[in-house]
Amino acid sequence: MNDTLHLAENLVYKRPKTLINVAMHYCPGCGHSTTHKILCEVIDELNIQSEVIGVAPVGCSVIAYDYLNIDMQEAAHGRASAVATGIKRVLPEKLVFSYQGDGDLAAIGTAETLHTCNRGENILIIFINNAIYGMTGGQMAPTTLENMKSTTTPFGRNVRKMGYPIKMTDLVATLPGTYYVTRQSVHTPANVRKTKAAIKKAFEYQRLDRGTCFIEVVSNCPSNWKMTPVDSNKWLVENMLPFYSLGDLKVPSKEEN
């Protein structure tokens, strides 16, 4: 082993300093953790710790504030974007984000989500879509795929009875209030990098007061999908991505930037 390898100048990755040095409660391999991590990396890289205020939802990420070393508020179920709206309206110069799961954002909080985007609130909404309710133990989410099993759709989601999986990101992209809408994932290193770049861009747009930025992160739920983390990411590729296709749904035109 080379003696100089561990010098600071050769450090290429270390835990972001905004990510508090405790083990997160998320299950092994969970995309929530990955997304928290890159969010912290962006906060570090943009040096915006003192400007960021985050809103945690109800769901698995209900105690996101235990891990992010920033000022945060915990919202009632579904209301994170309304809470974020309140913060942003009185502190327009700060950078505000809500971090919401599919149940929070796309079921109980659908109205708040759509109207926040429709008002073009100048905030970032990070939307973790793993097609299932994690915290309550694997029930059907609004984004649960057709025929996908959950504890409340034990024979698979019958869309005639349970409705169709909802593409919130496509929906909000149609609203004039949104500025940047993208669907990303964190199941490979390349995708993690892309998601991180998207978060970074969104904060930069927020500084320019451009409207709502909305980033869906198609994610896994190894525990409730009942598979290993590695298999869950394979399942995600085979089942989630064909329906929730990755990429930008709305990007600023060139002249705007």
Partner: peptide
């Protein structure tokens, strides 16, 4: 003063939560 007509009373009270949480 910021004045906002919310989409519902549910949203309004949660906006109060958020904005009130900033000490305003």
């Amino acid at each position: 003063m910021v004045i906002l007509q919310a989409e519902s009373e549910v949203a309004a009270i949660n906006m109060v939560y958020g904005a009130g949480g900033t000490g305003k």
